[in-house]
Amino acid sequence: MVKTKRMRGLFTLPYISWSLIFIVVPLLMIFWYGFTDKSGTFTMDNITAMADPVHAKALWLSVLLSLASSVICLLLAYPLSMILAARGEKGRSVIVMLFILPMWMNTLLRTMAWQTILEKTGILNTILQALHLQPLQIINTPYAIILGMVYNFLPFMILPIYNVLVKIDPSVINAARDLGANAFQTFLRIILPLSVPGIMSGITMVFIPALTTFVISQLLGGSKILLIGNVIEQEFTQAYDWHLGSGLSIILMIFIILNMIMEEIFDKNGEDLAI
């Protein structure tokens, strides 16, 4: 008995050491850097630095663009997930595959591809010029960043919603129709409420990476548009101020935790729905 217990303990060792080395220790380091200054004494300056207009503006813009991307992703992903879920087993896997396929490529590469498409003399404007249309100035604007975010994170919205939708028993939908609901009422009263858990985890999975990204904003936003991710990155790699970078990271973490708490609340309500 004792022996098997010890054996079982041994099996957990890799996971415990993994979480210690790669999760707990880095987190503690961030907190240590965040709450100290260069001489190592305790300070709140790195945290309050978020109130600095430049930082506050970057955070505000990040939240705004991430929210916009999440909403656009949701609007694109929901109808598509419904179409997917309504298809038979046959066509389904191919389409799901098509949406996962781009994820096999490096994010950096895919974002750089958008750079060459949107550039002033890029593919898009070359085509527009050939058609004698006004060239578009998209690159280096917040719109380009939103486009990049939506493009990169759309699959993360589709998959959870699709997963919830396929699990809805067709006889439940038939029952609603049978009880007099038309297609629209059935959607509003049955399908949509039953898919809330999928929507919430989709939003989380888009919002959090969008909030923290610095690659997309760097490549598509130029150097003028700073998101909070870029600010933190610059503090670490250019200003070498790990203390300030860590402090700002902690603030960002709070935002992410808030988002996850919200999702948890919604999921609690809909706990039984996702079956």
Binding site: D169, S171, N174, R177, D178, G180, N182, L194, G270, I275
Partner: peptide, 27 residues
Amino acid sequence: PNKRNLNTVFQKYALFTHMSIAENIAF
């Protein structure tokens, strides 16, 4: 189906799990 004056009781009950019993019946 929603325009027919008949109702169905399904094999797997098909109750609306996100509603209370009263809301199910009231649907």
